[in-house]
């Protein structure tokens, strides 16, 4: 258990963490396996660096495709340019969109307005007119109903005004007289 802990502390010290506690140092001095691990871990950096050139020399001469990079550069430039174009000219783009929308609207309206009625539509419109003309009582009824609604509204208003007068007279102890009474009130 102490060996495991000591080796972990040795590793942590190697990785630039905290310093190894003294108890771990004392244990490493006594324990041969931990001492060997400390030596191994301490040597690793130097050994890895020393072996690096030989290790990299074993790498096969990897084929680097300059044409691929050229194509990538061109693609990147294209993307950057198109992005710049959009970024630098937002107003013309917005104007073009608005113009197109306006043109579509006008065209739609003109086409819609100028479109002649089909014979079936004409027949339906004439039938509607005839039905209205054939039932004047219905018209009158509708007008009378609208009038009665207006009357009711007027009466509600009159009542409100009268109650307001009464309230003010009671509250202020005054007399309010109507000199020129409007016909409607």
């Amino acid at each position: 258990m102490l060996c495991r802990l000591t080796r972990w502390l040795i590793s942590r010290a190697e990785d630039g963490g905290k310093e190894m506690p003294r108890f771990a140092g004392r244990h490493a001095a006594r324990c041969g396996a931990c001492r060997e691990y400390a030596r191994f871990a301490g040597r690793m950096s130097q050994q890895f660096s020393g072996e690096m050139p030989a290790f990299l020399a074993k790498v096969p001469d990897t084929s680097w495709d300059p044409a691929g990079l050229e194509a990538e550069i061109l693609r990147t430039q294209d993307r950057t340019l198109s992005r710049r174009r959009l970024a630098l000219r937002p107003l013309p783009a917005a104007a073009a969109v608005l113009l197109a929308a306006a043109a579509a609207l006008v065209l739609f309206q003109v086409v819609k307005r100028d479109r002649p009625l089909s014979s079936a539509e004409k027949r339906m419109a004439i039938a509607d007119l005839k039905s209205v003309a054939a039932a004047p009582a219905g018209f009158e009824g509708a007008v009378a109903e609208a009038d009665s609604l207006l009357d009711r509204e007027r009466r509600i208003l009159e009542n409100s005004v009268v109650s307001a007068f009464e309230y003010l007279q009671d509250r202020l102890n005054i007399m309010i007289e109507r000199r020129d009474i409007p016909k409607t009130l």
Binding site: R7, W8, S11, R12, E14, D15, G17, E36, Y37, F40, A41, M44
Partner: peptide, 16 residues
């Protein structure tokens, strides 16, 4: 990462 490095060192020592 520290744990991985520690395990790698231990295993490497065993292999070496």
């Amino acid at each position: 990462v520290r744990l991985l490095l520690h395990r790698a060192r231990m295993n490497l020592m065993k292999r070496m």
